[in-house]
C-alpha cells in the first residue's frame, strides 16, 4: 500500500512527467535510436551512436526543445558491465525545462563525437571527462587534460585506477606517525633486553614550589596524627 502510494506520488511529479514527454518527442523523431530509462528522473539513452550528433543538435534547435544551455558533461564508470557512460544535462532557459541524455560506451575504447559544435561550453566539460575518466571526444578542438598535470599517468575516477609510486620524484605515500612511536618502543625494549637496564621515563622539568606537600602525603600525615591522638 505504502509502496503504491509512493509510486503514485512519484508518477505525479511534474519533472518526471516532463522528462517522459520530452523523451516521447525525441522518440517520435529518432525512433529506435533512443531509449527511455525509467529512473526516479527518467532519462534518454542514445543507443545508435551514429545518430548521437543529430540528436544533440535537434535538442538545441528544435522549437519544442530549445535546449540552449548545456549544464554539465560528466561520466560514470561501470566496471562490472564494462561500460563508461557519458552524461549530458541540458536545460532550456526559454521553455524552462531540463533533460538528461546518456550514451553508453565500451570501457576499452570509450569514443563519442564531440558536442562542442552544438554548445561551445562543452569544450571544457569534455576535457574534464577526458582527464578524469579517459572518454575520448572525437572532433574536439583541444582535447588535453584540464585539471591534472599534462604528464599525469592514468584517469583517476576510473574504479580500477592505481596511484603511481611517485609523481616527478615526489613520493605519494607518507608513513603514519604512529609507526615512529612503535619503532621507538621497540628500540627501548631491545636496549632493555640487551643491557638489562631499566629505562626510567624522563621526569618533568617542572619542580613543585618549596613547602608544597602533595595531597597524598598530607592524607598520610593526618592519619598518623590521628593514630597518635588515639594512643
Amino acid at each position: 500500500m505504502a509502496a503504491n502510494k509512493q509510486e503514485e506520488a512519484r508518477n505525479k511529479s511534474p519533472t518526471r512527467q516532463k522528462a517522459q514527454e520530452l523523451h516521447a518527442l525525441l522518440a517520435a523523431k529518432f525512433g529506435e535510436a533512443v531509449e527511455l530509462v525509467d529512473a526516479v528522473d527518467p532519462y534518454t539513452v542514445v543507443k545508435d551512436h551514429a545518430q548521437f550528433p543529430a540528436v544533440m543538435r535537434h535538442l538545441r534547435e528544435d522549437p519544442a526543445f530549445q535546449m540552449d544551455f548545456l549544464r554539465s558533461v560528466t561520466g560514470v564508470d561501470w566496471p562490472d558491465d564494462s561500460i563508461i557512460e557519458s552524461v549530458y544535462h541540458v536545460y532550456s532557459y526559454r521553455l524552462a525545462h531540463a533533460h538528461v541524455v546518456k550514451v553508453r560506451l565500451p570501457r576499452a575504447l570509450p569514443e563519442i563525437p564531440t558536442v562542442e559544435g552544438v554548445w561551445p561550453t562543452a569544450n571544457w566539460f569534455e576535457r574534464e571527462a577526458y582527464d578524469l575518466l579517459g572518454i575520448v571526444y572525437i572532433g574536439h578542438s583541444d582535447l588535453r587534460r584540464i585539471m591534472l598535470p599534462d604528464d599525469w599517468v592514468g584517469h583517476p575516477l576510473r574504479k580500477d585506477y592505481a596511484e603511481q609510486e611517485d609523481y616527478r620524484g615526489i613520493g605519494t605515500t607518507r608513513a603514519s606517525p604512529l609507526e615512529a612511536f612503535k619503532q621507538m618502543d621497540l628500540a627501548r625494549k631491545k636496549a632493555r633486553d640487551e643491557k638489562g637496564v631499566v629505562v626510567v621515563p624522563q621526569q618533568s622539568p617542572i619542580k613543585p614550589p618549596e613547602g608544597w606537600v602533595s595531597p597524598k602525603a598530607k592524607k598520610g600525615a593526618a592519619a598518623e596524627e590521628a593514630e597518635e591522638g588515639e594512643a
Binding site: M147, L148, P156, Y161, E163, I170, G171, T172, R174
Partner: peptide, 16 residues
Amino acid sequence: GGLFQLAYSVCKGVDK
C-alpha cells in the same frame, strides 16, 4: 596531506 591525504592529487606534506 591532512583530510585529503588519501586523494590521488594531493601531495602528502610540503616537506616532501
